[in-house]
Design a protein around this nucleic acid. Structure first.
Lengths: 344, 344
DNA sequence: AAAAATCGTCGAAGCGCTTCGACGACCCAT
DNA sequence: ATGGGTCGTCGAAGCGCTTCGACGATTTTT
C-alpha cells in the first residue's frame, strides 16, 4: 500500500503538505499542488480509510438501516437504498448497510464505534425503539418514515395522509360512494407502521368529510388471500364500486379477480393504487395511482444528512406532496345497480 | 467517547490487557477478564472502528456491489443483499453498499483505501471490467454470478445451465414438443449477463438432445411488451404448448394473456418459470418453477469470504444444483391440435 | 523604511488501537 | 534446591493520517 509519506517523498514535500493538497484546508501554491497530484496519480495512492477516520474523527460513512422483513414492497426499499448509495457517493460518503435485525443495538454499535458519521433509518414505526437512542447519541440522522413523536428528529416521507385523502377525493369526484381499501398485510398494521396508518387516516377523514362509505381490509399478498378478502368485501358492501389498494402484491390478484367476476375496470369498478410508478404502469390495467417517490426520498435523506454534517442542517419534517396520476383504472361510477356477480 | 485507556484505568489494568480481553489472542486470568468486561459494560465502551482498522489493518467490512439497474428481478437482489448483511454480522463483519455505477473505480477505491477487507460482486458480466482489478488487488472476493473466465476467482451461483435443462426436460417429459422461452429484457442479453446466457445454453442443448423445438424471445417487463411478444410467438410457432419464463415482470402478464386468449394453464399450455419461490407461489397460477435460492447464495458468498479472510478459503466455483418444483402450471401436453385461438 | 499581515510550507503531536518483546510469578522436572 | 517452562500482565512502538503552531519569505500597510 502506498502511504501519504511515500507520496510526500516522491513529490519532495512534507506529509502535511500532501494532506493539505488533499483536503484543501490550507492554500498551496499551484506548482506544489500539481507536483503532489502528479505523484498521487503515478503512485496510485489512496488515503487509508482507517487512518483518516482515526485522525479526522469522521469516517465518511453513512449507515443505512433497511427493514429485514419482506412483507412490504421490496422494490421501493431497494430503490431508496440505491438512491441513498448513489447520492451519498456524490457527496463523498459511502453507505453501510444495516438490517433492522440488530435493532437498537446496531445504533449503539455504529455510533459508539464511530463506524458511521450519520444514520438513515427506514421503516420507522410509530413508537420506534431506536429513536430515544438516536436522539441521545447526537449523531445526525434522517428517518425515512414518520414516527409518532418527531421532536428533535429529521424525517422525510411521502405525505401519506394527503395521499389517502387524494385517493378518496378522486373516487368521490367520479361519483363513487362505496369504497373498499385493500391494505397491507395485517402484520404491518399490528406493528403500527406509520405510513400504513397515516394513509388510512387520510382516507377515513376525507371519506367522512365527503360522505363516502369506507371499508378497510388488510390483506396478505397473493392470489388466495386477495380472493378471500374480495369475497368478504362484496359480501359486506355489495355496492362497492371503488377500490384503493396499498399493497403491491395484492394489485394484480385484485385486477384478475375482478376480471374473472365480470366486473370491468374502470366501467364497473374503479381502482386507485398507492404504489411506485413502475408498478402502476406495468400492471395489466394501467393504474390510476399515487406514486411513491422512492428515489426522491433517498436523495433527500442523504442531502439533509450531508447538510447536517456540514453544520448547515436543521431538524425538520419534510412531507412530499403526493401526486395522483390518472390512468386507465378509474372512471365515473356506473349509475346502474352494482355489476353482475361473476361465477365466483 | 469512551476509550480503551479509560476502560483500562477503570479496571485497574493496562491497555494491552483490555485489548487482549477483547481479542482473546492471549490468555487472561478469569478474574481480570471479568473485571475488564465489567468495566466495559459499565462505561458502555465500543472500540473505535477507525483505530482498529488502522492498528489491525483490517476493517471488518465487506463491500457488496449491487447492480444499479433495475431491469432485472429486484427482490432477488434485495434478498441476496439482506442475506449478505445478516450473515456478515454473525461473523462480525459489516457490509458496505456499493452500486455498480462507479464500476471498476469502486474496486480500486475500496481496496486501495482499506475500507473493506473483501468484496462481493453481484450481477457479474461474462467479460466484467472489474475482474482484472480484483485478481490484482489480492483481496478476497466472491462473485455472485459466473464470468467467462473464472481462474483465480471464487464464484457462487445457481447452476442456470442445469436449470435450463431441467425446464426443458420437465416439459419434454410431459410431451411438449414446441417450447417458447420468454427471457429477460433484450438489454440483459446485450450486455452478456452470465445467468441469462447460461440458462439459454442449458435450454438449447437439452432441447436439441431431446428433439424439442425451442423459440427464444427476450421480453421487456409489463403487459404490453408481453402481449406483443406472445403474438409473435404464436405467429411463428402456432404449435407452442410449453413456456419457460425467466423474467419476473413477464410472468403475470403472460398468465393473464393466455387466460384471455382462452388457453388454459395447464390444460392447453404449460408454463415453467425460473424465479424466486415467493413469486412462483404467489402468481395467479401456482407455478411449476426452478427457484432462485437468493438467500442461500448470499449466505454462501459471505461464508466463503470469511473462510478466505481466516486463511482457510479456496478459489472455487460453487454451482448450486437447481430444483424444479412441480406446481399447478404444468401438465401433459394435449394430444389434440393446439388450443383454440382466443379473441386476440 | 519599518511594522504588520499574509502565504506556503514544515515538524511534531496525537487520534485509539494492536502487537511484540519483556518480565515477574509460578509450577514442574531434575 | 535449581534451571526451564508456562502463564498473565505490562510498556512501548507503531499503524497512516490530520491539524496546530511555527517560521521564513513575500506582500501590504502605515
Amino acid at each position: 500500500m502506498v502511504t501519504l509519506a511515500e507520496v510526500a517523498r516522491h513529490a519532495g514535500v512534507s506529509a502535511s503538505t500532501v494532506s493539505y493538497v488533499l483536503s484543501g484546508k490550507r492554500s498551496i501554491s499551484a506548482g506544489t499542488r500539481q507536483r503532489v497530484e502528479q505523484s498521487i496519480r503515478e503512485l496510485g495512492y489512496h488515503p487509508n480509510a482507517g487512518a483518516r477516520a482515526l485522525a479526522g474523527s469522521r469516517s465518511n460513512i453513512i449507515a443505512l438501516m433497511v427493514p429485514l422483513r419482506t412483507d412490504m414492497y421490496v422494490p421501493v426499499m431497494m430503490e431508496i437504498a440505491i438512491a441513498v448509495a448513489t447520492t451519498a457517493r456524490t457527496h463523498g460518503y459511502d453507505v453501510l448497510l444495516l438490517t433492522g435485525e440488530e435493532g437498537p443495538d446496531a445504533v449503539r454499535r455504529v455510533t459508539g464505534s464511530g463506524l458511521a458519521d450519520a444514520m438513515i433509518l427506514m421503516d420507522v414505526e410509530l413508537e420506534d425503539e431506536r429513536l430515544p437512542l438516536l436522539r441521545q447519541t447526537g449523531r445526525p440522522s434522517v428517518l425515512i418514515g414518520l414516527p409518532a413523536d418527531t421532536t428533535g428528529l429529521t424525517c422525510v416521507d411521502l405525505d401519506f395522509t394527503a395521499a389517502g385523502a387524494l385517493c378518496v377525493e378522486h373516487l368521490a369526484a367520479l361519483g363513487h360512494r362505496d369504497i373498499a381499501v385493500i391494505g397491507e398485510a395485517p402484520a404491518v398494521y399490528e406493528r403500527h407502521t406509520g405510513f400504513a396508518e397515516r394513509t388510512l387516516d387520510g382516507l377515513r377523514t376525507r371519506a367522512r368529510e365527503l360522505g363516502v362509505r369506507l371499508l378497510h381490509r388488510p390483506c396478505e399478498g397473493g392470489y388466495d388471500a386477495m380472493a378471500a378478502t374480495l369475497a368478504r368485501v362484496f359480501d359486506e358492501r355489495p355496492a362497492t364500486t371503488g377500490f384503493v389498494v396499498q399493497n403491491e402484491s395484492a394489485i394484480e390478484p385484485l385486477l384478475a379477480l375482478l376480471r374473472r367476476q365480470g366486473r370491468a375496470v374502470p366501467e364497473d369498478v374503479s381502482v386507485v393504487a398507492v404504489c411506485p410508478e413502475q408498478v402502476a404502469t406495468q400492471a395489466s390495467v394501467r393504474l390510476t395511482a399515487v406514486s411513491i417517490p422512492a428515489r426522491q426520498m433517498g436523495r433527500y435523506a442523504v442531502e439533509h444528512l450531508v447538510a447536517k454534517l456540514d453544520g448547515r442542517g436543521t431538524d425538520e419534517v419534510v412531507l412530499i406532496a403526493p401526486e395522483l396520476t390518472r390512468r386507465a383504472s378509474s372512471g365515473p361510477a356506473a349509475t346502474r345497480t352494482p355489476p353482475p356477480t361473476g361465477k365466483s
